[in-house]
Design a protein around this nucleic acid. Sequence first.
RNA 1: GCCGGGAUGGCGAAAUGGUAGACGCAGGGGACUUAAAAUCCUCAGCCCCUAGACAGGGCGUACGGGUUCAAGUCCCGUUCCCGGCACCA
Length: 848
Amino acid sequence: MRCFGTAMTSAPIAPAAEPQEGRNRYDFAAVEAKWQQYWLTHKTFRAELTPGKPKAYVLDMFPYPSGAGLHVGHPEGYTATDIYCRFLRARGVNVLHPMGWDAFGLPAEQYAIQTGTHPAVTTQQNIATFRRQIQALGFSYDWDREVDTTDPHYYRWTQWIFLQLFEKGLASQAEIAVNWCPALGTVLANEEVSDGKSERGGHPVIRKPMRQWMLKITAYGERLLEGVERLDWPEGIKAMQRNWIGKSEGAEVDFDIENDLGKLRVFTTRPDTLFGATYMVVAPEHPLLGQLVTPEQKDAVEAYVLAAARQSERDRTDAGRPKTGVATGRSAINPVNGQRIPIWVADYVLGGYGTGTIMAVPAHDERDFAFAKTFGLPIVQVVSADGKPFESAQSAAFTEEGVAIHSSKFDGLTTAAFKKAITEQLVAEGRGEARVNYKLRDWVFSRQRYWGEPIPIYYPMDGAQAASSPEAVEAAVRSASARIRYDQPIAVLASELPLLLPETTDFQPTGDAEPPLSRCLGWRYFQKDGKWFARETNTMPQWAGSCWYYLRYLDPRNDQAPASKEAIDYWLPVDLYVGGAEHAVLHLLYARFWHKVLFDCGVVPTDEPFQRLVNQGMILGEDNEKMSKSRGNVVNPDVMLKEFGADAFRLYEMFMGPLEQVKPWATAGLHGTKRFLQRVWTLFDKPISEAAPEGDTLRLLHKLIQKVTDDTQNLRMNTAIAAMMGALNELVRLETLPRQVAETFAVLLAPYAAHLAEELWQKLGHGPSVSRVPWPSYDPALCIDDFLELPVQVNGKMRGKLMVARGTPAAELEALALADAGVLRHTEGKTIRKVIVVPDRMVSLVVS
RNA sequence: GCCGGGAUGGCGAAAUGGUAGACGCAGGGGACUUAAAAUCCUCAGCCCCUAGACAGGGCGUACGGGUUCAAGUCCCGUUCCCGGCACCA
């Protein structure tokens, strides 16, 4: 390979550092600053839509710019993608590699509440810090494509996508129970509640029905599930997505309530156990509960329902908790055998799943078994492994599949056959039907918060005509003489987007459930055609902006569409998406959902956004614990950069181990990568010879190209770096450095230690930039050695080594092996039973 | 409990079924230096034999079995660790 600088010689750039007297120290600080400046001003890594040129869209999960700044976990994935992108560019691929900010969210708003600083101000400060820190690492992002989810030019399109969902009937309002904390004056996420108290402050939290915007992600459940199969994602993440969607197939069955009180419908995945149903359970929130409870049981049931309502969803669903429940006093009729079975109410049945009612089969369901034991309810076995009845009373539920018993004419059927037969019979009798259920719930999409995208919806008002001002409208609403018609939502016209967040300094929660935007009266109430309207005052959750940012990068300044059709058609899908596993479910599921909706709208041509996903493993503290402020084991990248430089830092993060693996930080390790860079720098002080490399050096070079190419392609940066270190250890022994070796080494190093490689390239007499130099190729014939050291085993133990020429025939190898001194020691006086010779590999002898 | 991923020197790790520990960190010895840092050279899995070195031998990839001429790697079982989910009928 012969590489000469191709372009940009006219660019003003400082001369390469000259070797000084004595020891030539590599001044990483100066060199890194110089090249970062160069890349930025020359837009070296700008991505341009080039029809016909192969493309790669390599995406990092964009960060939430927190006040704490970057931590060492961020640059791990960013470094991996940066190396990969620089490598691909050198291989002639048109690479799109952008960065941006997921900047709406709670911390900025909390900070505003405490200090009065507007979230927009905090956010911009934090973004500036993050940008500075990320740029100091020398990543090859196309900064012209930077996006910020809080920028109205961005969230205009977030709102536009919401309107698409609204028009398709996928966004609607519902009264649902949320975790309301009166003391904090806010709704809390399930994760923020434990034991019925708020995580922060320990205030009581109640379940309170409130009007919420919901997105019907359940309508896409099957497609989201099925799409997982075609994705090149880690198996674990795919499993989590499947599990979250939670598809289960079964049947719904009607049970008549005695005294002609109607029917209760249950969902079951085991209709084959119908004969074993000995009682039923309805969820405490079941709508028919009030009608079916008997007068004697009314008080007890009401008390139970009240207690259940006080629990959070999370506590309700905490497995392993003792079973509780109350009999309703009423019974139902088992449709297959006419038996009267009691109906209970218990909180282990959830109102939101299936029909909110179950048939309990204690013999074959662990939960029902525990409940039946607690309350002394009958247990009837209807499935056995071998078709024979159980000998003794069960000590646990038998939940496996098996053969039916005690099920009249169905006895002897396997579980699968029974399910099919009984479902057909129930359908024929009009008592049930086959049914698929999903655990996936619709997405609660509204937040009672200020710092989020306003939902672009408004409502007509009754009784507000006379009002002369927003304040008067508000007064009328408060006195109940005017009413907001939430049942008649109107979409803001797409042409009127963005619907801007109003300026306010009033972020304090007030104790009622009204979002802060409700108090921006001049924004909330407006007149149109002489009538008053009220805007939606909930905002979108933080997930909204990150659901589609990968699209905006394609065409970030477009004010006609989220991105142009040409850009979308050219760049999509994302070829490689790298980020932490903490987003395994929510972000990745929500983004896939939106993408599929946009696919249905004809906006995107693919039905999945992220073809390939890689999770970088978490970096732990030096103490092997998760990094956290409270543990005091957080490593600050700024400090590391100052002492070791960006190249050494990046190299270390990659050298620590495989990208996907969890691994502990060790600052001492940075000495190694810094030393390596210094030694490379010193290597280039050797006299450069123009003669072509030959012999071992040539072989070394080609092996190195092969190894680095292979490993980089497969994101095995750790072993690529090890190979470069190994090669360096050989090259330092040379008297002079052949130009071809030096140039190739610089090009191979460039994706990994980009600043140093640029400097070396310049030092070799080339103009910038090494990033424009094509990746070297290798000759496979030069990657294999002429002479090999072959092991000889005797009875499986290594007893000798043969130095032989490649291709030495088996017979000759056998003769050599048998004559080897080390081997003879173990074969003397013994019989050779077997000789296995694998040419160019090894010789194995079996003796006795 | 279920799902996913792990377990290799003092530490991070490497190894198409074919010489376990490449590459690095930390460490020992040496050179340079007034000294230190930096740099360079060099040693190094554990154990036995040995005055020491060479040579040699034994044991070693969480544990127990198995397949194979040959197992860190493949198969069966077990333990422990990490991540996620967890009363979803």
